[in-house]
Design a protein around this nucleic acid. Sequence first.
DNA 1: CTCAACTGTAACTATATTTGTTACAGACAA
DNA 2: TTGTCTGTAACAAATATAGTTACAGTTGAG
Lengths: 168, 168
Amino acid sequence: MSTSSRFAVAVHVLTLMAWAEEEPLKSEQVAESVNTNAVVIRRMLCELAESNLVISQTGSMGGSKLARPPESITLQDIYQAVESRGVFSLHRHPPNPDCPVGVNIGAVLNDVLDEVDAAVQGVLANMTLRDVVSRLKPCMSTASGKRVSATNGKRKQVARVQSVSARN
Amino acid sequence: MSTSSRFAVAVHVLTLMAWAEEEPLKSEQVAESVNTNAVVIRRMLCELAESNLVISQTGSMGGSKLARPPESITLQDIYQAVESRGVFSLHRHPPNPDCPVGVNIGAVLNDVLDEVDAAVQGVLANMTLRDVVSRLKPCMSTASGKRVSATNGKRKQVARVQSVSARN
DNA sequence: CTCAACTGTAACTATATTTGTTACAGACAA
DNA sequence: TTGTCTGTAACAAATATAGTTACAGTTGAG
């Protein structure tokens, strides 16, 4: 069904910023953590900025940080910012209008899909970025400090292990 | 997010069969209502048969019908039969394991996505195929009778109105 | 003022997934 | 045994997402 990782990446990006608190992060730094290209991140940051979730600053010493405190940003906000279309799609081509089922099934399905989408958003509304950060913390060694990445130089990108991405 | 219409098509197909009651439908007939190719329908029918939702019969006078009464088939059953992957995906490539956020975000997201998926299925479990048929009926003129399609010959396929599919 | 470090964005290519099509072997009723 | 179906393989087309390169414009530092 869903073939998009946009939501997962958006949560990841914003979590990094919640983690970094007020310090602006550069798209390169974020890209390194997400393991993708910096332009992909910048594109997403533009969308997140339009929804007033982040603020970016151009120029030297620029970067992006959260626009508001992490406890005020829910996963629903993020979902709405980056996943415009609902959970399912309807028919690619409209069904046959001469068939009594075909002509009406769209309306029925739309009702169902609206209900589903509302349920999804209901779940996502119950978790904030602050919660995500809290869930992250127990997993880590406390010694490793607060920086996003200890090595901030030109580290080689992590090898991409093909076809091992979690949900397949 | 979702780029698949599999669920919508599956519901449509099974609704046709609920509508037709015991009479087996041919893949061509179904394809005409869904406005797609018969092979697409047959592929989906195979999946639905594996989940014991339909029974197909090969040979002349063959076709497919529901394997059990429509009130015993929920939209959740259909969802599970045709939408193997959950609602969202995680990162295409695994995040950087050297970053404290990157290494743990997957676990957090997985929990969230499981919750979301459960919510989706909860909604879908509350509606049966019988309900879908009931919701269909009020929309139709009662005069048009019960046949799936009045013209059962080689009617030309409905013109495909590009990019007007409901949710875009 | 000038430079170097950033973002924003366009234009592409690559990759993955779904959908549509053609073709044909095998099942089955008449 | 013949014509009508399903099941399935193999492939083409369409669509969407992700990745890349390139560059204009902004900004702080010196």
